[in-house]
């Protein structure tokens, strides 16, 4: 009875059945929920994509960059007096408090990303380490941060905090849309549009693309490569911090030392699905992954299949488009 050994066993007596009736009934709510979580995946996926685009490095420690943001949200909101009950505050005050939490999360995640780059990756770059070493270092850094949090906060999740009472806002096709869903999707899309504009328009953005295309030539043309790399990490951290706020909003009990792991894997898959290194691809991949997972789960009536379905689609897409749906170059993304 006690959760000693959490070994999953397959449900014995049933085989795969497709429940189209349930999918029909739940189609729209599955869509909206899928988009909400998809936006969170997409924000985190951007961090993987940007770093990959610039360094050709899969930064596995990005999930810990994200979870540090979650802890920052938790501590800020606890400090501001949020608790298990929805706070008795006006809309303005709640927005203000959430903005403070957002800033704290962004700072925490960006700082983690910055330190990660400085302490783990830059020394390797200076020594011209082979690419595999970077990958192993990323995994090592991921575990290191996880277990530092474990030692600090222990194995149990933090107290769940309610940010606000979710309110049904309106009705689409007989499905209620909630305030938090609108907030998350809108904010995430806006942030991604800004990121995309920043990369395609600004001077620094051009630098990022230049380094992604050809680091040596970019350096010769006067781009400060180190500065560009650190900027990329920080942008990824900022977006992960925003994702952290939304994630804790949806899943208050998700603040735990290894809480970023699964989300990190999903966000990474989203980045690959859309085309790793491609900013729009991350958005598309994130939303698609959120939707596919939810549809698959309802169709098959079993959450054990959520990830199977999502990753099956990933495999199928990569079979026909090995570079992901939108292709995989940050450098070639439209100038």
């Amino acid at each position: 009875m006690i959760p000693t050994i959490l070994t999953a066993v397959p449900a014995a007596n049933d085989w795969i059945t497709l429940d189209f009736v349930a999918l029909g009934q739940n189609f729209w709510s599955a869509t909206f929920d899928g988009l909400t979580f998809g936006s969170i995946y997409a924000l985190v996926a951007l961090g993987y994509t940007l770093v990959y685009g610039v360094l050709n490095l899969i930064n596995f420690a990005h999930s810990e960059v994200f979870i540090m943001g979650c802890y920052a949200v938790f501590f800020t909101l606890s400090f501001l007096g949020f608790g298990p009950s929805a706070p008795n505050l006006g809309v303005g005050q709640i927005v203000l408090n959430l903005l403070l939490a957002l800033i704290a999360a962004i700072v925490a995640s960006a700082l983690t990303a910055f330190l990660l780059e400085r302490l783990a990756y830059r020394p390797l770059r200076k020594r011209n380490a082979p690419r595999l070493v970077f990958l192993i270092t990323a995994i090592g850094a991921s575990f290191t941060i996880q277990y530092l949090i474990f030692v600090w906060r222990g194995p149990v999740p933090e107290q769940a905090l309610t940010m606000f009472q979710t309110k049904p806002i309106f009705n689409v096709f007989g499905t209620i849309i909630y305030s938090d869903q609108i907030l998350i999707v809108t904010a995430a899309v806006i942030m991604m549009v800004i990121t995309e504009r920043f990369i395609s328009k600004s001077r620094t953005g051009r630098g990022i693309r230049a380094v992604a295309q050809d680091p040596d030539t970019a350096t010769l043309m006067g781009v400060n490569k180190e500065k560009i790399i650190i900027t990329t990490f920080v942008i990824g951290g900022v977006l992960a911090g925003a994702a952290a706020l939304f994630y804790v909003m949806k899943i208050p009990s998700g603040v735990v030392y290894n809480g970023g792991f699964i989300l990190g894997i999903k966000a990474f898959a989203a980045a690959v699905l859309g085309g790793i290194g491609n900013v729009r691809g991350a958005l598309l991949g994130g939303l698609l992954l959120g939707l596919i997972g939810n549809y698959g789960q309802i169709l098959l009536g079993n959450s054990q299949w959520t990830d199977v379905v999502a990753f099956l689609v990933l495999v199928l897409v990569l079979l026909f488009r090995p570079e992901g749906i939108l292709g995989s170059s940050l450098g070639r993304s439209k100038a």
């Binding site: 979580f37 699964i262 939810n294 789960q297 009536g301 959450s303 959520t306």
Partner: peptide, 20 residues
């Protein structure tokens, strides 16, 4: 009835079925 997995965090699909 619906089935979830250990370690799952987002239960929106199951909850949608329950609400319906």
């Amino acid at each position: 009835t619906d089935k979830v997995t250990q370690g799952q965090k987002d239960f929106s699909a199951t909850i949608s079925k329950i609400m319906n």
